[in-house]
Measured scan of single mutants.
Amino acid sequence: RSRTTFTAEQLEELEKAFERTHYPDIYTREELAQRTKLTEARVQVWFSNRRARWRK
Rank of each mutant, 00 (worst) to 15 (best):
R1D: 12
R1S: 15
S2H: 07
S2I: 11
R3P: 09
R3N: 12
R3Q: 11
R3M: 14
R3T: 15
T4L: 09
T4D: 07
T5G: 11
T5S: 15
F6A: 05
F6K: 10
A8S: 12
A8Y: 08
A8W: 06
E9A: 10
Q10T: 01
L11H: 11
E12H: 06
E12L: 10
E13I: 15
E13T: 07
E13L: 06
E13R: 02
L14N: 01
E15V: 04
E15G: 02
K16S: 08
K16V: 06
A17P: 02
A17V: 14
A17I: 15
A17N: 05
A17L: 10
A17T: 14
F18N: 01
F18I: 00
F18C: 01
F18E: 01
F18K: 01
E19L: 09
E19Y: 03
R20N: 11
R20G: 09
H22T: 03
Y23P: 04
P24E: 11
D25W: 03
D25Y: 03
D25Q: 01
D25M: 02
I26R: 09
I26G: 09
I26W: 12
I26L: 14
Y27C: 11
Y27N: 10
Y27R: 14
T28N: 03
T28W: 05
R29E: 00
R29Q: 10
R29H: 00
E30C: 14
E30H: 11
A33I: 04
Q34C: 07
Q34M: 09
Q34G: 09
Q34P: 00
Q34F: 09
R35N: 06
R35K: 15
T36P: 03
T36D: 01
K37P: 01
K37Q: 13
K37I: 04
K37G: 14
L38K: 00
L38A: 05
T39L: 04
E40A: 11
E40K: 05
E40M: 15
E40T: 07
A41T: 06
R42C: 15
R42L: 12
R42S: 11
R42I: 12
V43E: 02
V43L: 06
V43C: 03
Q44H: 07
F47A: 02
F47D: 00
S48I: 04
R50G: 03
R50H: 04
R51I: 05
R51A: 02
R53D: 14
R53S: 14
W54K: 09
W54H: 15
W54Y: 13
R55A: 08
R55H: 07
K56N: 11
K56R: 12
K56M: 15
K56T: 14
